[in-house]
């Protein structure tokens, strides 16, 4: 495989990494601040994609769709926090897993009823429809570059929010000294609801951006949810920086192994079987990465209190 192709695949990996970061950042913030494990985070991603695709189809504007997707996910997240999730803070992780698993079932079935079981179409926005020459003579889809740019902007915004604002200070204090923050008179309930909504908006953004690349369909949330788990385990649960490191690493490993393996497998197997073998073995690579990281650093690459 030549180096130009490798560069292209690395950029593809970064695209996936950016989306994983948006998911992992929300998941890890929610866990860090509230101590809740939210399996339905993938459902928020799905809702963002469906709501965004619908608004884009109606208005013809991808930007409006993106806003709508983020807003829909944030609102659903907020509603969930206010009605259900806040009852789970005092419960053990098993109850949290079960309750949010139930939410997945409800969300998937509801989306199936509203939008039908078939995938719906979401095209790339016109402004980013073409390709850009990253190096002279090497075209690369502009939309993927836009995703990477948006993701980096979101990461920068998150950093600013957490490191430079009063809200961020409360979030940081909440992750380490929850009881003290509460004792100091901070409205911790409102803070929790806000963090949950932020996580939802990030998931909605990821879902909307993924729409034109992957299919917008029922079950899309669980595919990325499990990868997101790998990301937070690799990066270290509860740490946004860890989510960043884990997301980039997992995105790159997943994409590169899927790109490199077919070439290697075709040398030993007949082409009819090779694609099936390679596609699935490529998917295994990230889990091996996770096993290796766990064996060396069970707390993750960038643990919470580092």
């Amino acid at each position: 495989m030549d180096s130009l192709l490798l560069l292209e695949q690395a950029l593809n990996g970064l695209t996936l990494g950016v989306m994983l970061f948006l998911m992992a950042a929300g998941l890890t913030l929610i866990f860090g601040v509230m101590g809740v494990i939210n399996l339905a985070h993938g459902s928020l991603y799905m809702i963002g994609a469906f709501a965004g695709a619908t608004v884009t189809a109606r208005t013809g504007s991808f930007a409006l769709g993106m806003l709508a997707g983020m807003a829909a996910s944030a609102l659903v997240a907020l509603a969930l926090e206010l009605t259900l999730i806040r009852r789970l803070y005092a419960r053990d992780h098993l109850d949290q897993v079960l309750a949010t698993y139930a939410l997945i079932l409800i969300a998937n079935e509801s989306v199936k009823i509203v939008w039908g079981p078939q995938p719906i179409f979401l095209g790339t926005p016109e402004a980013f429809g073409g390709s850009v020459e990253i190096i002279p003579g090497v075209p690369y889809p502009a939309y993927r570059l836009a995703i990477i740019g948006t993701g980096l902007a979101a990461a920068a915004f998150l950093w600013w929010l957490i490191a430079r604002t009063r809200l961020g200070m409360l979030i940081r204090a909440g992750t380490t000294h929850r009881a003290i923050v509460q004792a100091l008179g901070v409205n911790i309930q409102a803070l929790f609801a806000l963090v949950f909504a932020i996580g939802g908006a990030l998931a909605g953004l990821a879902g909307m951006m993924a729409g034109p690349l992957l299919a917008v369909q029922v079950g899309m949330g669980e595919q990325i949810l499990i990868l997101t788990f790998v990301v937070v385990v690799v990066g270290g649960l509860g740490s946004v920086r860890g989510a960043m490191a884990g997301a980039v690493l997992v995105g790159l490993v997943d994409t590169l192994s899927r790109a490199v393996l077919p070439v290697a497998v075709r040398e030993v197997l007949p082409p009819s079987a090779a694609d099936q073998v390679a596609a699935n073995l490529g998917a295994v690579a990230v889990y091996l990465l996770m096993a290796v990281v766990l064996a060396i650093r069970p707390q993750g690459l960038v643990p919470r209190h580092a």
């Binding site: 259900l84 009852r87 419960r91 079932l105 409800i106 509801s110």
Partner: peptide, 15 residues
């Protein structure tokens, strides 16, 4: 759409 029944049932069970 029986998942729409199972989901809330499971929620009620947990809570």
């Amino acid at each position: 759409h029986w998942m729409l029944v199972l989901g809330p049932l499971l929620l009620a069970c947990v809570l």
